[in-house]
């Protein structure tokens, strides 16, 4: 479908209309501390941001999620109750292309050929993704090394390109097309807007200076499991979960029961390969006893194992882990050191 356009002045009213029909999530916040929240008025959305602090993955894969509750107090008549599935259609408005792309990666895990996680895929199915491309990528962004880009369409249904007074709207999927057709704020794009759009995209792509040959990293890692490199690179790592919890593509989880008397809930919570009990076995043995094995797991999983399993690296180059690591253990530095090994 041909590109559409929407005036920036129309965005708030569009959001207000969407809110009536959908549950709408958008970036909100200030002072560089942005998170995705459900909004109740179009003016709450803050679209002029670099990227959110927490990744929007939690809209599909919350940090704590009740899988079901049970009640054993009635003996024979014990009961299990599943959470009601979300009926209302949802929209994420203003997600960055890297984060939209992270959903494609997560689909491999939670909504793939082999396994379908009903909690994730249910939410995924009823959500329309409207992304906004990045005119001004951050210095820590390296999406183009991972097969994405500041205007990558992967994972989006519609993607907006900011050309000043208005957004050009690229229609990526049928779902996106349906939504755009329903709302008359979207108009057919003018020709001169389209050339502005192409310039904008080109300029933004050129701003991303970092180029990492990720395919070579993957190949190198094949034979690096026992490399002394891991001792050196992990020396400063604190073993916290900043890098994994804030990563849009990390998906490891734990399942525990929260029990009060005869009643309980089974909950799924995020877990991290950096933690001491991540692979702690019932025998007491832990095959990943120190930060060396744990950091190695993080890098190997993202850039080698995931590639073998799904044909792509489990990183979208958003740079969150670089910005937030308390000791500045920079994943780009790690990848470049691997290449230099």
């Amino acid at each position: 479908m041909k590109e559409l356009e929407i005036a920036k002045t129309e965005v708030v009213s569009l959001l207000n209309t969407l809110i009536k029909e959908y549950k709408v999530f958008a970036p909100v916040g200030q002072n560089g501390f942005i998170t995705f929240q459900e909004i109740h008025s179009g003016s709450e959305a803050f679209l002029d941001y670099i990227n959110s602090k927490k990744p929007p993955k939690e809209i599909f894969f919350p940090q704590s999620e009740r899988l079901f509750s049970y009640d054993l107090s009635k003996g024979e008549g014990w009961s299990v109750e599943e959470p009601a599935s979300e009926k209302k259609q949802r929209i994420i408005f203003g997600i960055r292309p890297c984060d939209a792309r992270s959903l494609v990666l997560l689909d491999n895990v939670f909504d793939g050929q082999l396994y379908k996680d009903p909690y994730y895929s249910g939410k995924r199915k009823n959500t329309t993704i409207i992304a906004i491309g990045c005119n001004q990528p951050s210095s820590t962004c390296f999406c183009t090394s991972l097969g994405g880009g500041p205007f990558s369409q992967d994972g989006s249904d519609l993607i907006l390109v900011d050309i000043g007074q208005k957004y050009i709207v690229q229609v990526v999927t049928e779902k996106g097309k349906k939504l755009a057709k329903k709302h008359n704020e979207f108009k057919e794009a003018e020709d001169n807007s389209l050339s502005l759009m192409r310039d904008t995209i080109e300029t933004a792509e050129a701003l991303i200076k970092s180029k990492i040959e990720v395919q070579k990293v993957t190949e190198k890692l094949d034979s690096m499991f026992d490399d002394p490199f891991w001792d050196l690179v992990s020396e400063k790592c604190l073993g916290c979960a900043v890098c994994t919890y804030l990563c849009p593509t990390c998906y490891c989880f734990d399942i525990t029961d929260e029990v009060t008397g005869q009643r309980g809930e089974r909950v799924r919570t995020w877990d991290s390969c950096a933690f001491p009990n991540f692979t702690l076995q019932a025998s007491g043995v832990n095959p990943r006893p120190s930060s060396k094995e744990r950091l190695r797991q993080r890098i190997m999983h993202k850039f080698n194992y995931f590639v073998a399993n799904h044909g792509m690296a489990a990183c979208v180059g958003c740079g969150r882990c670089i910005k937030e690591c308390p000791v500045n253990l920079d994943i780009q530095v790690v990848l470049n050191s691997i290449l230099n090994r």
């Binding site: 820590t140 020396e235 400063k236 670089i322 910005k323 000791v327």
Partner: peptide, 12 residues
């Protein structure tokens, strides 16, 4: 020297 502005990083 750290990898981003306003950062230094532990060094062994």
């Amino acid at each position: 020297k750290g990898s981003v502005p306003l950062r230094s990083t532990p060094c062994f």
